[in-house]
Each structure stands twice: as structure tokens, then as C-alpha cells.
Amino acid sequence: MSLYRAELRRLVLRRLTRWATVLGLAVLATVAVGVFLSNQKIDDAARARAEVAAEQDWQQQVRQSEEIRAECEQAAARGDQSGRFPRDCSGISPPPRDIFPAEQYLPATFDFRASFGGTLIAPAAILALVGFVVGSSFVGAEWNTGGMMTMLLWRPKRVTVLLTKLAALLAGLLALAVTTTVLWFGGFWLIATTRGSTEGMTAGAWQSFALTSLRGVVLVLVAAVLGFGLASLGRHTAMALGGAVGVVVVGQFGLGVLLKLTGAKFVEAWLLPTYVQAWLQKEVVLRNWQSCQVNPFGQCEPETLTLTWQHTSGLLAAGLVLILGGACWAIRRRDIS
């Protein structure tokens, strides 16, 4: 327990932890402020302005169509054969009023029930990045500066030291992720209250948001463990960060290009962001447009592949076992010099 307390304190004292946290929260605050500024509350005056704008647009369209019909009739009288107008000028008629609904002229408003779920990807993604960087640096810098060796002179049980360090990291990140998520809920509820609507929220909707947030928090912790494990395997922060860059450049862009060139089906199924998306949105439906065949009614029905959060959980579990298991094995077996 004393080691855990020391590691938790070390985590909080580290400059990178503080800066990464501040930077991550600043990005999220910027997103929230942007949403606040780009939305408005819809009141009677706004609806009236929208009605007026819709009416004005419709009137303008009516005037334009009447002018075109007049030109058409004049051209027909001149015997114009240029083909600029239809033979029957009566076919030029003004658009109906109902295709100019006032709702289209309303300013953007934040509907909590409809839009909040989509925003939850932001804290999950940003905090996962923070978790990966802080996690890899928390152990990588210790290896690099010799801090890990010093610690092992005090506590020689290597795997216990490594896992206690990881536990402290995860506890710190869990506190950060939960606090941020609560603030995110509160902030967007405030935005919806002042710049939109909170109507229609049911117990089911709250449950759905809560589960999405929970999956986001899990993603943050998994990213931290992966960064921590990779840096511990390579005994340097650069191992994790370099590995991540390698996966993105070679494993994602390179693989994506290669699969497209070979005409593989469902290319996105090989790319990690698809699984992250499936994790946060519960499922992602991929469509193979190459197999799209026109049916007798002229509609395209592409072949589909559905990836669910369960698929992602399998992938994450395999990654965790491989990397964290490897890190534990390596610290147990390899000499420390």
C-alpha cells in the first residue's frame, strides 16, 4: 500500500501528467465552448424570424419562376428554337409553399437527447490519448532515468512493483476520466438548457449515455495500459510512442492502401479506428459497394458487415493480454542494467 501511495504521488507530481491533463481538458473545454457559441435557444421570436425567412425565400422563388415563364412565352411568340425553354411554358410553375418549412430556417440548437451521444466520443478519444502518453511516460521515463532501478533496490519484487505502478496510473486516470465525464454531462446539460433543449430525456436515454460513457472510460484505461506495457517492454517512452506511430503509419495507412489495391472486401474491418467507433457507438455497419448489384427495382443493396462493441472488446482483451503479459514476463526475466 505504501508503494501504491508513493506511485500515486509520483504520478501527480510529474510534469507530463499535469501538462497532458491540462492540455486534454483545454481541448475538451474548447469543444464545449464551440458548441455553446454555435447553438441558440429556439423561442417564439426565433420561430417567427424563421417563418418570415421561409416566406421570403418562397416568394423570391415564385417571382423567379414567373419571370422565367414570361421569358419562355416571349420566346415562344418570337418562334425561338434555341431550346433554352420547354415547348410548353405552362410547365414552368412556382414551387409549392410546403417545401420551404420554417424549421429549415431555425438557427442551430442543441437537442440533448439527439446530439449528446455523439459528443461522448470527444472525451473518450482525447483522454485515451492522454492516457496512452501519460501511461507510456510514467514507466518509460522511470526506466530511462534509472528510477525503476532505484525503486527495485527498495522493493525487489519486480512484477509487484510494475503492477503497483500500473494500479496507481489507472487509479489516477480513472479519477480524471470520471471527473471529466461528469463535467462533460453537466456542461452539455447546461448548454442544452441555455442553447437548446433537454426535452424527451427518458430513463432509457440516460442509460444509453451512461453505458457509452462507461465504454469511453474503459477505452481510456485500456489505452493507458497499452502505452504503459509497450514502454515497459522497450524500457523507454519512445518505444510506446514510436510503436503507436508505426501502427498508424504502416499498419493503418499502409495496410489501408494495400487492401484497396488488392480489392479486398470491407477494408475498414482491418483498421483500428473502426473498432474504436464500434466500441463507442455499440456497432458499425460496413458496406461493400463493390458488390453492389442493381436489383430489378434499380436500388443498390450492398453486402454488409456489422462490427459490434463485443468484437472490439475481444480485440482489446487480446492486446492487453499480449502487451501487459509480455511486459510482466520481460521485467521478471530480463536483467536490469
Binding site: S2, A6, R14, G146, M151, W154
Partner: peptide, 21 residues
């Protein structure tokens, strides 16, 4: 001697003291 460069000497020793009870 190898220590984390951004910590003070007191922080360094205090962390070790906590870890070692």
C-alpha cells in the same frame, strides 16, 4: 546516481521513504 531530473531532492527522498515505509 540516477534520479528523476524534474523532482527536487526532498521529493525524491520522500517518495522513496513512502515506498519503503
Amino acid at each position: 546516481p540516477q534520479f528523476f531530473p524534474h523532482f527536487t531532492a526532498r521529493e525524491t527522498l520522500s517518495l522513496l521513504a513512502t515506498a519503503g515505509q
